[in-house]
């Protein structure tokens, strides 16, 4: 990758603030600088409530930063980020559409012929291992299966950037590993730029090329940036046994631990104040 190529995502001194009900201003994220190169898998880790999701929403164009810039492939972002696919933390499937219609919707609305869209949706459902579940409604699927449908729904539009907000958060440990491996397998096919938010440091190291640490909020900042030296292709469960994994984990955790403690302290202070 040459340095001349513009980064897929570049946040430049991005500050996000919300106006509270009593007209005070709450600064969620302060002067965040972050770049994700094309084809790079970056994970953001931070204590709960530090504004990781906020940063993702800024990159998606769902939130406008109060100050600073967002550039997508060098272009200043105004409005929604049309190059990005977003996998949400909460259930975001359309409950009134079957799995296959949920996957096909991205093509349907862009005016693709219906038969064509259905055929491609079937192919994507098969690629996430749900080929036989096309006519099920979301409530008939398990949490893991719904995440798979969500992944197919996002990937079928072939976005250049993938934004993921703790997508495997609500799943059990085994399902998370399976989903992690599935994600890496799909990603390795065409290496999109990925910004992956998680609170799980192990998951972050196992998946990403780079791990970024955020401080506890409010006014959260980016306080660390590590390259992950592990080789690809990786297997999520095996990579955890490697020596480099443990060294990196120890190194990052020594920084992250203090922030997690601060995060807890602040949360309990707020709870006391209320």
């Amino acid at each position: 990758m040459t340095t001349a190529e513009p980064a897929a995502i570049a946040l430049e001194d991005a500050t996000v603030a919300f106006r509270l009900a009593d007209s005070r201003v709450y600064t969620a994220v302060e002067k965040a600088n972050l770049t994700v190169a094309n084809g790079e898998f970056v994970a953001i880790v931070g204590p709960t409530g530090c504004g990781k999701s906020t940063l993702l929403n800024v990159a998606a164009g769902l939130l406008k930063p109060a100050a600073g810039h967002v550039r997508i492939f060098g272009e200043h972002l105004s409005g929604l980020n049309r190059d990005a696919g977003y996998l949400f933390q909460a259930d975001a499937l359309f409950p009134w559409k079957t799995a296959i219609d949920n996957v096909a919707i991205g093509l349907d609305i862009s005016g693709a012929p219906r038969e064509n869209a259905r055929a491609r949706a079937q192919a994507f459902l098969t690629s996430v291992g749900l080929g036989a579940f096309g006519n099920r409604y979301p409530h008939m699927l398990s949490g893991g299966q719904r995440k798979r449908v969500g992944l197919a729904q996002v990937l079928i539009r072939d976005p250049k950037i993938l934004l993921m907000d703790e997508p495997f958060g609500p799943l059990d440990a085994q399902t998370r590993q399976i989903m992690g491996n599935l994600l890496l397998e799909l990603w390795s096919a065409d290496r999109k730029a990925v910004l992956f938010v998680t609170h799980d440091l192990e998951e972050a190291i196992a998946l990403a090329d780079r791990v970024v640490i955020m401080s506890a909020g409010p006014s959260a900042r980016i306080i660390g940036d590590w390259k992950v030296p592990l080789k690809r292709p990786r297997d999520i469960s095996e990579v955890r046994m490697e020596k480099e994994f443990h060294e990196l984990h120890r190194e990052i955790w020594s920084v992250l631990k203090d922030e997690v403690m601060k995060g807890y302290a602040q949360t309990s202070q707020i709870a006391e104040a209320v």
Binding site: Y86, F88, A92, L93, G106, I109
Partner: peptide
């Protein structure tokens, strides 16, 4: 309407008319 489902619709490229119809 769940804000997540709405945001998802918008991120999938729906315009206002399509949000109306599909969400």
């Amino acid at each position: 309407v769940s804000t997540t489902v709405l945001d998802n619709g918008r991120m999938l490229g729906m315009n206002d008319r399509q949000l109306m119809r599909h969400v």
